[in-house]
Design a binder for these strands. Structure first.
Lengths: 204, 204
DNA sequence: GTCTATAGGCTGATAGAC
DNA sequence: GTCTATCAGCCTATAGAC
């Protein structure tokens, strides 16, 4: 997802990725697919092409690795979401762009959002509070769009909070059943989810 | 959930529960809240008031315990759903009853449905196939209601499959944020989710 | 049907050479 | 920054007494 086109080498080969980035990507994929407790540090190290000893150069513990990866995932998701929102003029268009960004992001990267369900509870209270703050910051972006739509009259949901949760769950669920060779493309799915979101928001 | 009012004792004290039932309940709660890998058999045994040795009298392995509990949860959910559906005359009423049953069931018992997300992958292929069959049987009940609604003209969703998945995810998500002392009762939440489901189904 | 005791392996984490 | 070697503790599961 990181473009880094300002790399000085100007190389024509596949852009090299830092060991740390590779480690985080591997950890994200494994944690997202199997859950925190089910993934061992040996497996993470092996998949990242490292030994256990080397892994501990990048993170001081398994929990620290998990926290680092969640934080960077949340931060980059928030960052991209803000930029996407800034380019759309109306609440509905902002919502459409955000839904597509979220669905595509989850399928092409790792779905870290479903992890918060129970896995956040394994980490220490202070670190958890910081992560929950980031998660709330992300959700606030959706909340704002809905509020703006209500203000300008384009949305009129029965219960804005439940609708917001429902829309996010519809997005988060796609990665569980989407298959690249399936009936629908990610763009088509994103459009359907967006129209479903509109149905919920325009209930009034 | 099991009534067993035909117990011969006619006792006026709280209905006694078999050790096996208690074990299954404890295991369901723990697995649902922390995930399969994060729960140890020591913890399950302790919570159920047993030692490890005794636990293995009821299940031959941790995986076997997990399979038994998922199977019994699925079977009883399907059974209750069928009975609930049979009492409602129209597709919309069947849907309303099923949504309420599902939401209330998940909150008052353990939410085993979210487990299938990734946890089903840890169990052996044969057992998994049987469980997936049960899960599909449950989902087929929802599919049937939607199809019947489409046939009689009361529903006209853009994409029946995605709407079905979305409705189920809206139901399954409630247990993640519902609090007994919160703004809404379970009945109120169920009604809102039902009306949201109708919005998705009557898109036409 | 419940217990105690223990086997055998895997886990997260550390020490220290290079 | 990466490695090898290793530790102490926890895990699932079993054996066998009662």
């Amino acid at each position: 997802m990181k473009e880094s086109s300002r790399s000085s080498k100007g190389s024509h080969v596949a852009r090299p990725v830092s060991t740390e980035q590779r480690l985080m990507d591997v950890a994200a994929t494994l944690f997202a697919s199997k859950g925190y407790a089910a993934v061992g540090i040996r497996e993470i190290a092996r998949e990242a092409g490292l030994t256990i000893g080397s892994l501990y150069h990048y993170a001081s513990s398994k929990e620290d690795l998990f926290i680092k990866l969640l934080r960077s995932s949340y931060v980059s998701a928030i960052d991209r979401a803000r930029k996407t929102i800034a380019m759309a003029p109306t609440p509905a268009q902002r919502l459409q762009a955000l839904i597509r960004l979220h669905i595509v992001g989850e399928v092409t990267e790792a779905n870290v959002w479903e992890l918060e369900r129970t896995e956040l509870e394994v980490i220490s209270p202070e670190a958890r509070a910081a992560l929950i703050e980031l998660r709330d910051e992300f959700e606030q972006l959706w909340r704002d769009i809905i509020e703006e739509g209500i203000s300008d009259g384009s949305f009129a949901p029965e219960d804005p909070a439940i609708v917001r949760i429902s829309i996010l769950r519809m997005c988060n669920g796609v990665v569980l059943w989407y298959r690249p060779d399936g009936r629908l493309t990610l763009d088509e799915i994103s459009d359907i989810v967006f129209r479903q979101a509109l149905l919920l928001l325009r209930a009034g």
